[in-house]
Each structure stands twice: as C-alpha cells, then as structure tokens.
Amino acid sequence: MKILINLFVTFFKTGLFTFGGGYAMLPILKDEVVTKHKWATEDELLNYFSIGQCTPGIIAVNVATFCGYKLKKITGAIVATLALVLPSLIIITLVASVLSHFLQYEAVLHTMRGIRVGVAAVLIKIVYDLGKRVLAQSHFIKLDCCVFSVALLAVVFLKISSVFVISAVMLFSVGRLCFERRRR
C-alpha cells in the first residue's frame, strides 16, 4: 500500500511539473525514481524511455505504466498512469471552464488571436526540428522523401485521414520488411 501511495505521489508530481511531455519529464523522474526511491537504475529508466518511444502511445504514459507495472503489477501500472494524468485533468478542466466565460471580452479575444499566431510559429519550429532529425537518422533518404511527399499530398489535397495514412505506411513498411527478408 505504501508503495502504491509513493507511486501515486511521484507520478502526480511528474504530471504537475512537466511542461511539454516526453523527455521533459526525464530529470524529475531521475530524481524521484532513481535517486530517491531506488525503484529503477538510471539505465533502466533510459531503457523505459526508448521502449516508450518504440511503442505506440504518449511516451510519458508509457514510462509511467512501465514503472508502475514493475513495482506492483497491473494495480501499480494503473495507479501510476492515473496519477500522471490527474494534474492535466484538473488543470485543463479548470482552464477550459473559465476560458469560455472570458472569451466574450475584447481584450481576451485580441490576446487569443496573438496566441494563435504564436502557436503557428512554434509549430513551424517543431516541424523543422522533427524533419531535420528524421532526415539525419534516415538510412533510406530517397525512399523516406517519397513517403513524406506522398503522405503530404494525400493529406493536403485528398484530405485523407491521419489514421489511414499511418496504417497505409505501416502496411507498406511491413511489405518492405518481408521483401528484404526473402531476398536474404
């Protein structure tokens, strides 16, 4: 029981103090999970992150589920995930309920319009960084550029849904994998 409470407190804190998610939560988790509670070694924690990255879903949730499961099986996994999600649930619900009242004010509207311009700029940077990273790590640059172009055309002009695009590329890659294997 004590471990469950500690798990809850740790991941609640992580959810509360992480801005952005993903690797932003690594320092907090290192302090809590590795240094304070000794639930995992630093290597194990880094391992959780890489597993989190190569399984579907939100990385932060994957890491929480992993730590929780290791300590207290399914109950632990559920408690850690719940704790991680709870701060978002509370804060966002509060913000959303207040925002709808504030949106009738002229000043708030001007600010929100400015904020949306800021979001566009931040997203440009995110896409640029993401693209640069993918390109740098790519082993099949020409093929990856083709996949990128076809996917972009599909979503911009044909309005094909994101789920469909991801499924199609997944299928294509499975095909490539089988083909490579047979050739070997």
Binding site: C54, I124, L130, Q137, S138, C145, V147, A151, V165
Partner: peptide
C-alpha cells in the same frame, strides 16, 4: 524498430499539414 522509423517521414508530413 524498423517499422516505427519508416513511419517517421509520414509523421512529419501529418504534423506539417496541421501546421
């Protein structure tokens, strides 16, 4: 790992479209 890596160019395209 290979499968997830090969998805990444499509992911960039999706996020670019949203942008």
């Amino acid at each position: 790992n290979f499968l997830l890596k090969s998805l990444q160019p499509a992911v960039v395209a999706l996020v670019l479209n949203a942008t």
